[in-house]
Amino acid sequence: MSRRLIVEVAGVIEAPVERVWPEIVRAIPRTELGEHVLAYQGGWWYRGEWSVTPDHGGTRLVHRVYNVAGHHWAVALANRLFIGFRERTRRSFAEGLTHIGTRLGCATRLA
C-alpha cells in the first residue's frame, strides 16, 4: 500500500499506557488493531493511525493521517488543497485528548 503522510499530531496523557490504551481502543473506530497501534481506513484516500508509547510521566499519543490513494494531487483537490486541514485535525485531536484525560482523571497536553 502506497501512503503519504498528510499530518501528524501528538500529545501526552499523564497516565500509564495500561490505563490509556483501553480508552483509545474504546473511543476510536478501527479497521486494524495491533499492539498499541490502531488504524482506521476511511473513504477512498484516508488512513488514520493512532499509537501510544510510554512517555515521562504518562503516555504519548500520536495521530497520523495518510493519503493512501496514491495520486496526491487528486486527493489535494478533493480536499480543497488541505487548507485548514492541519488546524482542524489538531483541534479535534486536542478535544479528544482532553476527553480522555477527563475520563481518566488526569492532565493532558499537546506536544
Rank of each mutant, 00 (worst) to 15 (best):
F82M: 07
T59Y: 00
S2W: 02
L77P: 01
F93R: 03
R4A: 10
G42T: 03
E49G: 06
V12H: 00
P22T: 14
L5R: 12
E8K: 14
E23L: 13
G70H: 06
A74C: 04
P29F: 04
E8R: 15
W44K: 10
V17S: 00
G84W: 09
T89V: 15
P29M: 07
L61E: 08
P22W: 14
V17N: 00
E18Y: 02
Y66S: 03
H71N: 13
W45S: 14
V68I: 15
V12Y: 00
Y40G: 07
H56E: 12
E32W: 07
G34A: 09
L5A: 10
R86A: 15
L61Q: 07
R86C: 05
L61H: 09
R60D: 01
E18V: 07
G57E: 00
T31E: 09
G34E: 09
W73T: 10
R86F: 10
S51D: 06
I13Y: 00
W45Q: 04
T31L: 08
E49N: 10
N67E: 10
W21S: 01
R4D: 06
A78Y: 12
Y46K: 11
G42E: 14
A94W: 03
V25F: 02
R88K: 10
T53C: 01
R88G: 03
V65I: 11
E32S: 13
I28D: 02
F93D: 02
E49I: 12
Y40R: 15
V12D: 00
